[in-house]
Design a protein around this nucleic acid. Structure first.
Lengths: 343, 343
DNA sequence: CTGAAAGCGCTTACAG
DNA sequence: CTGAAAGCGCTTACAG
């Protein structure tokens, strides 16, 4: 037993007595104050202040059927995302955006099948009103299951996969294609003419869309955009290094490189250094993400910033809309070119 | 409206009907199965499976007075902690340890005074059963307020401050002093005799205890441990660099350096490099934390690893104990020397 | 605008 | 071992 006993907190009944009204009236004040006279409302507010009353959310939820809480669900094999600082920005942003609605965020991790089952049971039992979903391969079956079960869900990132289902999954994402376009236009504006790219995996939206953006700008500009100028990495540093070495072999005269992630770009810089190419003099390098990797070494990376702070607030906004009965929707947010030393 | 309507989930009443027993009996099965015949228990279990029943936690909480949820509270001026990968390990560990108890983790951030007030109101209203508290300067007033209010709290890290209050605050921490001792013993075993230290701020446990460990071992060994061998940093890279430059001026013949954090140690390496000292040949350098900074450059740091995975599971264990009526307690966990290139 | 009343889904003494 | 009943703290039609 703790020596400091917790007193039973005041209930709506205490407030009603203090204010000289019925419990129904107190409840009405609590829920928007409709159909309450100004005098009664003021008396209730005073009584709330005096008693220190705070609503019992369990009692409220029991009757409303809402939980007034939201899950932040991570379906990742956790290691990856928990090492990504962007994940922290997202988590913090969502927590704070929800706090503004007085809604707590429940952090749930569904890495293993057992964890997924637990989470599905918890969520479908109505213990949360909705789910903010974060996973990298957004063809994730859990997204489908949740939508199927009628749970309001907002995913972070564009869903990949069967169009029919995907259409019903609300999501918020940065504009990968346009970001890539902006970077490649920048490289072109620098006078570069042999612009190769290290793309991400083709089963991720970043892999597909950033490559598409690269190709579009080159084609529009009349510059070469053949498959020989494309190598693929797995978003790791080493992957970027290997892919770049491959490109240097195939296209020795390349004068610029658009790399689909900053981490891969760091690997690209290592490969270029080993090959004796100076950056940015011989080869201009552009990254993507504006992650800490961008400034973790020299030269610092010119890159594309994803608006993580806005992504989190938009995710919460869309989810609140869903809870209010709105249709599912997609939000694509603009990116931003950040100029540093590498291009 | 979503096109997939959520059906009203089965209640204890549906289960009772299906099993041919009263709702009281179903509830008893749900709560440990005491005073229930094997036959009745089996019938109830079958009915639960058949109906897909999941307890309504709001109804349960309303009557038990427990919320069966726990807050993970961050009182940091957020930037710092959210950039620390150890924080992620801690958060993930706590989430998963709680999940094993079927208890969701509510992430709460109390950076600003307004946020602190909101959190205090939420917590003291009984919306969570207890708090896992993370903050760097653990003399944090919110810890005191929570304990004062009779809320079960477990802090991460040793509380600093008024002894009386601190004693009542349960906490889990790595053994800073012993970790420092181990590192300094290692430096001594390398044959080093002029071992200086870059300590952390004296208002943090890591600052105080790691310095104490350094001094103890040197004194025991009969090596110099005077104040001229001590400089202070603020846990930042630049702070470590400045402090090291200061030491090099004061003690040009130092042959080893114990730095109270890996990030500061990276700064120390820069200062040593600028001064033309080779590491580890001229100066052996030991860090603390085993953070990513330890392997972010060359040489990789010999350092002291904090057991973050165990810290999280112990925090949850202690909190569960508190909720079960146990007295507050402190858990100090052993650290581990990690040998790499710098010493 | 207001109060009295029903009821949300559960747990827990209380009888038997 | 079991059921009937009270009650947790709220919201919301329903009368007035």
């Amino acid at each position: 037993m703790s020596s400091t006993e917790r007193r039973r907190p005041p209930t709506i009944h205490d407030v009603a007595r203090e204010a000289g009204v019925s419990r129904g009236t107190v409840s009405r004040v609590l829920n928007g104050g409709h159909n309450v006279s100004p005098a009664a409302a003021e008396a209730v507010r005073a009584a709330i202040r005096k008693t220190g009353y705070v609503v019992n959310r369990h009692a409220r939820s029991l009757i409303t059927g809402r939980s007034d809480s939201v899950a932040f669900l991570l379906t990742e094999p956790q290691e990856k995302l928990f090492e990504d600082p962007n994940f922290n920005v997202l988590l913090r942003g969502c927590t704070q955006a929800l706090a503004a609605h007085d809604i707590p965020l429940l952090l749930m991790i569904a890495g293993t099948p057992a964890e997924r089952r637990r989470v599905m049971r918890y969520v479908t039992a109505g213990h949360v009103d909705g789910v903010l979903l974060v996973s990298s391969h957004t063809g994730d079956p859990i997204a489908e299951q949740l939508v199927e079960a009628g749970i309001p869900v907002v995913a972070c990132g564009k869903p990949i996969g069967r169009k029919g289902r995907a259409a019903r999954l609300s999501h918020v994402a940065a504009d990968d294609r346009d970001g890539a376009r902006e970077m490649v236009r920048h490289l072109v504006s620098l006078g570069r003419r042999r612009i190769a790219t290290v793309a991400g995996p083709m089963d991720t939206p970043g892999g597909v869309d950033r490559l598409a953006g690269w190709r579009e700008v080159l084609t529009e500009t009349g510059l070469p955009a053949g498959d020989d100028l494309v190598a693929h990495g797995d978003y790791s540093r080493d992957g970027g290094e290997r892919a770049t070495a491959e490109l240097l072999e195939r296209v020795p005269d390349l004068d610029a490189l658009f790399v689909a992630s900053d981490l891969m770009a760091r690997g690209a810089l290592a490969a270029l250094d080993r090959a004796g190419r100076r950056v940015p003099e011989d080869v201009a390098v552009g990254g993507f993400d504006d992650s800490p990797a961008a400034v973790a070494g020299l030269p610092e990376l010119t890159t594309i910033r994803q608006p993580w702070d806005r992504i989190s607030s938009e995710m919460v906004r869309v989810l609140m809309g869903l809870l209010g009965g709105e249709e599912s929707s997609a939000v694509i947010l603009p990116t931003e070119l950040v100029r540093r030393g590498s291009a």
